[in-house]
């Protein structure tokens, strides 16, 4: 095909060698980019035509091995899947190739992915079962059982979601979207016997699903369109369905929404904090509450503090009835 969309651009790349460099630096490479070029082609061009020491992971070139995940201007991409011209258009012809995590950089695009693999291992990402060495029949999965896995089985462990997750960045103990997606994948598998153990891990404060900040960066980042946060929501629900959820600030916060909704239709902002934290936990919030009260953020329609502080929606009885007949989970 006649290629009339070639453009000459300067590609920037993050350069760093942990063995010799004190600080990372950015280098520029001028090159022609064609309409079918992938980000992987740009990296190959840097290595083959400009600087043989430029380092990155690559293998299948078919979007299945997960080796070539990098970031471009902060956007996670799988280099062998992402069209280069699309990116140049998005970022006004000014792009910088970066490793998925700069603080984990070993050499250029190559990072130490040890934390990713450790978290993956923590959730036992395999079917845990007593295997009969001489089976007489197959352990078949029905279409419905397979469908329940949703698309979680398609993960290629590229790390795009993991290194896009701000909750992980702030709290290194958090399992993160990739490991939690794997936890969902094997917990929902009817051949597996470790579901309870896995669910308990994912319910653990500071480690499991309750540290997810709900930013949807993972859903946006995944090159296989898996939507990890959808699986995280399923894990939340499964904790309640299977009675794994313990009463703590996070679970009470989720369940406690219904308290206000039954009373007025709205969430009761003051009650949800009091109910989730308990009386003893309130000391943390007193200073903020005082400030909010001073600026008129906490007010009461009845004129009496904390009595009928919230207006009531019209047809509240409908909400009450719907909660009564539709609620499936309990804390």
């Amino acid at each position: 095909m006649h290629n009339n969309e070639t453009r000459t651009v300067t590609i920037k790349a993050f350069r760093f060698n942990a063995e010799t460099d004190y600080l990372p630096y950015t280098k520029q490479y001028e090159m022609e980019v064609g309409k079918d070029d992938l980000v992987l082609d740009l990296m190959n061009r840097i290595k083959w035509e400009h600087d043989g020491s430029f380092s990155y992971r690559r293998s299948c070139r078919h979007g299945i091995c997960g080796a070539c995940g990098i970031k471009v201007n902060g956007k996670p991409v799988l280099a062998c899947k992402q069209n280069a011209i699309e990116l140049l258009d998005l970022f006004n012809n000014d792009i910088t190739l970066e490793p998925q995590s700069k603080k984990r950089a070993i050499k250029d695009m190559i990072i130490d992915k040890g934390d990713f693999w450790q978290k993956h291992a923590d959730v036992q990402p395999y079917v845990v079962a007593d295997i009969d060495p001489h089976p007489t029949h197959e352990t078949k999965q029905s279409v419905a059982q397979f469908n329940a896995m949703l698309d979680s089985d398609l993960c290629i462990q590229c790390g795009s979601c993991h290194y896009a997750c701000p909750a992980l960045e702030a709290n290194p103990d958090f399992l993160g979207p990739a490991a939690l997606t794997a936890a969902y994948r094997f917990t929902i598998d009817t051949r597996d016997n470790a579901g309870e153990e896995r669910l308990k891990l994912t319910a653990q404060p500071g480690v499991g699903v309750w540290d997810c900040v709900k930013c949807f960066e993972c859903a946006q980042a995944c090159p296989k369109e898996i939507n990890p946060i959808e699986k995280i929501t399923k894990l939340h629900n499964m904790q309640f369905e299977q009675g794994i959820a313990e009463r703590n600030v996070a679970t009470k916060h989720a369940e406690g929404f219904l308290r206000g909704m039954k009373k007025t239709g709205y969430l009761d902002e003051a009650d949800i904090v009091l109910y989730s934290e308990g009386i003893l936990g309130m000391h943390k919030h007193l200073k903020t509450a005082m400030k909010m009260m001073k600026s008129g953020k906490i007010h009461w329609h009845s004129g009496v503090p904390f009595i009928n502080s919230i207006p009531e929606i019209k047809n509240l009885d409908e909400v009450q009835k719907l909660i009564e007949i539709s609620q499936t989970n309990k804390l």
Binding site: V209, K214, T233, K234, H236, N237, F240, T251, H253, A254, E255, F257, L258, G260, M261, G265, Y266, L267, I313, K314, N315, E318, V319, L322, I323, S326, Q327, T328, N329, L331
Partner: peptide, 23 residues
């Protein structure tokens, strides 16, 4: 919409996804 209730703010969805859809 004076009849409208809380959207669940993703927290009710964590507790009971189906109920959140109904509301």
């Amino acid at each position: 919409l004076e009849e409208a209730s809380c959207c669940g703010a993703s927290h009710l969805q964590d507790f009971d996804e189906f109920l959140a859809h109904v509301l």
